[in-house]
Design a protein around this nucleic acid. Structure first.
Length: 178
DNA sequence: CTTTGGATCGTCT
DNA sequence: GACGATCCAAAGG
């Protein structure tokens, strides 16, 4: 599912970005997944239905956003790692005063949450409801025919699995792709 | 542009 | 009590 999310739109209020980089996490059988080791308070949303938003808090200061992709009970999810800003650019600049270039706005999993205003309060929302605060949208742009592939970033276990995909030659991918 | 180390706190052991 | 699906400033090339 992960590479098929590429080029879809993620929106929060008026702020919209095109998904250009993702990572897959495969439930309890993936040592790098938050669900490795079974259900807990934090990962509860991962065990819920597909199409919902899993937001977690990490490093004492950052939020990251995932799309739950497996059937209920499987705890499979895809981390959204980078967006190309599409709309609401003014709000994004306001939310990320340290950004110097447009590509600094959403080129990382915590950066994009900051830019869009996504936080733990949004954990568990249905991304496909259409009327919600956070939405996953399809504007007809197909995923890349041949996405770039690489290892996942920032993890210490299952480091060699090639479960990160991004849009080739896109300016807005995270630093690890360049 | 690359490398390095600090920040900071919720979660699970 | 240890560590994390990260970011940023500072320093050097």
């Amino acid at each position: 599912v992960a590479p098929r999310l590429l080029n879809l739109l993620l929106a929060c209020g008026p702020r919209v970005g095109r998904i250009v980089e993702v990572e897959a996490y495969r439930g309890e059988e993936d040592p790098a997944s938050h669900a490795f080791g079974g259900p807990s308070r934090r990962n509860a949303t991962m065990y819920g239905p597909a199409g919902h938003l899993y937001v977690y808090f990490t490093y004492g200061m950052h939020y990251c956003a995932n799309v739950v992709c497996g059937k209920e009970g499987l705890a499979e999810a895809v981390l959204v790692r980078a967006l190309a800003p599409v709309a609401g650019l003014g709000e994004m600049w306001d939310a990320r005063p340290t950004a110097r270039r447009e590509r600094d706005l959403c080129s990382g999993p915590a950066k994009l949450c900051q830019a869009l205003g996504i936080s733990g309060a949004h954990d568990g929302l249905d991304l496909l409801a259409g009327s919600g605060e956070v939405r996953l949208l399809d504007d007809g742009t197909p995923p890349p025919r041949r996405p770039a592939v690489g290892r996942r970033i920032g993890i210490s276990r299952a480091v060699d699995l090639p479960w990160r995909w991004w849009v080739p030659n896109n300016e807005h991918v995270s630093v690890g792709c360049r």
